[in-house]
Design a binder for these strands. Structure first.
Lengths: 190, 190
DNA sequence: TCATGTAACTAATAAACGTTAGTGTAAAGC
DNA sequence: GCTTTACACTAACGTTTATTAGTTACATGA
């Protein structure tokens, strides 16, 4: 089955939202990118807001689902950290454009979507912190390390991964993940 | 001398731009925040675009100037890295709201400001990378470390510092800088 | 062949936007 | 006391915006 028109529109939107921001992207911009007139978009989508919502929740759900898999696995805590980095690298490469939206464009969600989105995000961070906390308990992370700060540091690096990846298309996914584990975890893990 | 009205407007704008984004913030929003009508803003400022421009270049210049001081200093390379983290912490605390704009809102600058802004940014990153490179040469950073990736990792963490700092007002500036040095540099420095 | 559904189009609407023009008023400078 | 400046206001303008309504063309399936 080929890609649906709606999917094409969503991908074009992601690219534009990323480059110009949600508000600065007009329906005409999106329409032009897929070769139709703005009004014709509404044969395929409900609203501009719906586009943003679906793009963001696609990704949020992918992260949540990946995190749940990792949490339920029998990996060691350190291995879970590594698996999380793999997850971020995978999703960054899979979703490319739309993943950029999670850094800033989520603020343009309307209620109640905004609340639901933040709920997913908060939960994700809590699960991530849990794993870091377990590492600390099992003495794989130094007693004096501020794990909240470490969490923020790791997550912000991973959030920006997409912009780094787009500048270095040459680097392989495996090599990227390997380097990230060294850079992000060596400062934390004993 | 007390704060000029223009300064008050700029600070209110920074807070709003940060929360809602540049495009989603209307002149009425800004006017309401300072207790006047939208049209009255133009007694103090030239345009909405000018507000963004001045906010961004204030910060960009502060970073550039701080970086130049550090580069010209007699500190060791490792000490320069630590000084850079101090610089980011200082500016994050000093500028609070407007510093958030450098992560995303700079895309709404118009030419030729956009080009000039990116020039400053690129130069800053190059200088930062230079210091990392010197550390690698002097064997303070492992031969196999990808310093471009390390740079991105450090910078993205520092870009997000403002959002972390706002959630943890209790933590002191000194303690924050100390923790950051451990978290960000231990993974890199041998 | 006819009916149906899909998906494009043009035209229009109502709201919001940044900005300008013109007016009033009170304080400051001569 | 007169003039000027500073700074607020209202009113309006021209654009841009997302979205709706109504229409047309074409392909599919009965």
């Amino acid at each position: 089955m080929e890609k649906s028109k709606k999917q094409i529109i969503k991908e074009a939107s992601a690219k534009l939202f990323r480059k110009k921001g949600f508000n600065a992207t007009s329906m005409q911009d999106i329409a032009a990118a897929v070769g139709i007139k703005a009004a014709s978009l509404y044969n395929h989508i409900g609203s501009k807001q719906e586009l943003l919502k679906e793009l963001l929740f696609n990704i949020a759900n992918a992260f949540t689902s990946g995190m749940n898999d990792i949490e339920a696995s029998t990996l060691s805590n350190i291995e879970k950290l590594e698996a999380l980095i793999d997850l971020h690298v995978d999703l960054t490469i899979t979703y490319r454009d739309s993943i950029a939206l999670i850094t800033g464009e989520w603020v343009h969600l309307e209620e109640p979507d905004l609340k639901n989105y933040l709920k997913l995000r908060t939960q994700y961070e809590a699960q991530f912190l849990n794993i870091l906390s377990a590492c600390k308990k099992s003495k794989h992370i130094d007693k004096n390390t501020n794990i909240e700060l470490a969490l923020y540091s790791i997550l912000s690096s991973l959030h920006w991964l997409y912009s780094w990846y787009n500048k270095n298309k040459g680097v392989s996914k495996i090599e990227l993940a390997k380097q990230l584990k060294v850079t992000l975890l060596k400062g934390v893990i004993i």
